[in-house]
Design a protein around this nucleic acid. Sequence first.
RNA 1: GGUUCCGUAGCUCAGUUGGAUAGAGCAACAGCCUUCUAAGCUGUGGGUCCUUGGUUCGAAUCCAAGCGGAAUCACCA
Length: 614
Amino acid sequence: MLNIEELIAASVANIVKELSGNEVKPDSILIQKTRKEFEGDFTLVVFPFVRFLRQSPDQAADTIGKSLLQELDLVEKYQVVKGFLNLTLTKAFWQSFLLQSLDNEQFGYRNARSGIGAWPGEGIEAEEADDRPLVVEFSSPNTNKPLHLGHIRNNLLGYSVSLLQEAAGKKVVKVNLVNDRGIHICKSMLAWMMTGDGETPETSGKKGDKLVGEYYVRFEKMLREEADALAREKGLSDDEARNEAPLMKQARELLRKWEEHDPEVVSVWEKMNRWVYDGFDRTYARMGIDFDKIYYESDTYLLGRKIVLEGLKQGLLYRREDGSVWADLADHNMDAKLLLRADGTSVYMTQDIGTAQLRYDDYRPGKMIYVVGNEQNHHFSVLKKVLALLGKPYADAIHHLSYGMVELPAGRMKSREGTVVDADDLMDEMFATAGKMTEELGKTQDFSDEEKAALYQTIGLGALKYFILKVDPKKNMLFNPEESIDFNGNTGPFIQYTYARIRSVLRKAGEARFQAAKKGFAGAPVNEKEKQLLKALHDFPATVLEAAEEMSPARIANYAYELARAYNQFYHDHSVLNEPDEAVSNFRLCLSHLTAQTIHNAMALLGIHVPERM
RNA sequence: GGUUCCGUAGCUCAGUUGGAUAGAGCAACAGCCUUCUAAGCUGUGGGUCCUUGGUUCGAAUCCAAGCGGAAUCACCA
């Protein structure tokens, strides 16, 4: 079915062709929303075809306007302003849009395509890439430290982008790739073995990821002391001293033993990783994030190595004298990339090759989206080149969703300077602030303790998520811990509040009255504030598709804000239930209902809940 | 130095495939609660859209050069 903009555009194309005999390109017909300061609903920019019509812009606009008025019933009138043709659609059009949308709880979402759940299997290769599932990787933490603010942006983005793609009709698989192996985790293990005295999350009461993180910090501290001493004694550079320090040698020895599957080492590794996973799980749960599949690097790096060795056998890669294996990327003006060290161990790129293959085998995705910070832009362009070199069909399917860093007023977070903003702490603070604000406003006197806790969590998380998601992903963003995140203005709680207000009206009206209202508003007059609301609501489905296309939750966040603002302006000026004219009251009730539904659906795409009362 | 990204109000950010007089919020000031939730609404002040050229009927948006900032150019992940 054509939407209204397409319908008008098609009609305009016909008109111009009849008048001038010229075929106009569809994309030269620009239908946009009429700006607030002019009368009208949609605007046609006539400049692109004044040439064909051999008329002044205003004359051309008038000519087209007249024809549209005749041809399309839903065009009520038009006005010409400086080469812009402003069309006003009939009340009937808007009211039937409202009526049709009201019963659709999934308003704005495209239905998920059926039959895609049964992958992988025969025939999947023949399907269009568009019909295949999408794999979205996000979070991807290391297991030596708790999650921090940077991870929060990553998690929220990845989760929201997944929801957006689903809303656009794609089948989505959310995956996490846990970096559970390597020197960093060996450092935590070593510090724990040397100084831990058997401490566990149970004996200490500490969250597992926090506990392991503490040992990582302890290792770094001890290493620093050793390295400083060594640098003084032997006059070594800092890098040399750190490398030469006995602790560092022990950590590397631990890694070597791990790769040899030393049972004792593997057992400590498993134990401490489990602590971390338990901690992460709690943080994810609180954040409202989940995954369909978790990959572990310890499982994928060997596959990567296998693929590299096959590539070498096929002559796609080459071996240097020292035995290391490389990809030649000179054709792409890139330096050669190391894929296996001389000792046969793998690097980051190697395991990413394995991971990509595994995902392809598991899901045959049309696209593999990696939500990873922009510091890894180069890594991903190399990964794609290497996979192409290896002849992998999924090389082009890889899409790096690159996002900007979260910066503090003093710059980047630095663990050495203790400026890392911990994810759990931040959420705790948000919940506490939400509670304080709500108590001050005296809004929850009749709430039970459980209801209060749930509400404060909803508001606190809403504020945090909205704050982060409203910013264009590719831009760096600033977070100032001194100034707590706002609850007024362009914020999550503002939108949540608007929803709660509407729900309050709807509760007062009751379901029976709403059902009756749906049948009883035809022909009611539409005032300016109501028209603004209708236009905003009408925009939602297209906005969802654009946001999905651009992978930008920010588009949805800004949309939700505009919608809430439009409702509040309407609400301020007009009464729903106290309106004496029954048809008008019915109309406003329905308008309120669809607005609530749309706010709910928009916020859901950001992973934000909306409260019935606040 | 090469490559990529960013530069819009005092601050944080919007601004669709180029379209009308560049918008919000915060902060400041002034108003609005006997009426469905004032976490709201209304108003005032605040701009060299980094600069200079180019393309165009039309440029914050596209192109080129320059300036400023960030990331990256690892046998780290």
